[in-house]
């Protein structure tokens, strides 16, 4: 009996937890958190390429190159297929506007 009650409560809790609705499309302001982990310090003593002061188009072109050429980079080509074309554009746009700061 008690087990049934507790199951019911957990069920209600899970239902409540599902709302509000979460959108499944990745948003640039959150996705950029991953870029930051390696690129935050780049351009100083780091050999990881800097993303600072680049236009949306420059960044987007680079991302598209990673998508097309599989061997030229160490890491980035392994990641690029993970984003939709729109997500890549949003990300490039976000980084060119705001850099890698959390916002």
């Amino acid at each position: 009996m008690i087990a049934t009650f507790s199951q019911l409560f957990v069920f209600v809790f899970l239902i409540l937890q599902m709302s509000p609705q979460i959108s499944l499309a990745a948003t640039a302001e959150l996705s950029v958190l991953s870029c930051r982990i390696c690129h935050a310090q780049s351009g100083t003593s780091s050999e990881i390429p800097s993303l600072a002061h680049k236009s949306t188009q420059e960044i987007l072109n680079r991302l598209k190159t990673f998508l097309a050429i599989k061997t030229e980079s160490t890491i980035m080509h392994r990641y690029m297929t993970g984003y939709s074309a729109v997500e890549r554009e949003d990300l490039a746009d976000y980084i060119s506007k705001f850099g890698l700061v959390a916002k």
């Binding site: 509000p20 979460i22 959108s23 499944l24 499309a25 948003t27 302001e29 959150l30 890491i75 990641y79």
Partner: peptide, 12 residues
């Protein structure tokens, strides 16, 4: 009171 957003999460 806003809906949470999602992202692509990376790990190396």
């Amino acid at each position: 009171g806003e809906p949470p957003k999602t992202a692509v999460l990376l790990n190396t």
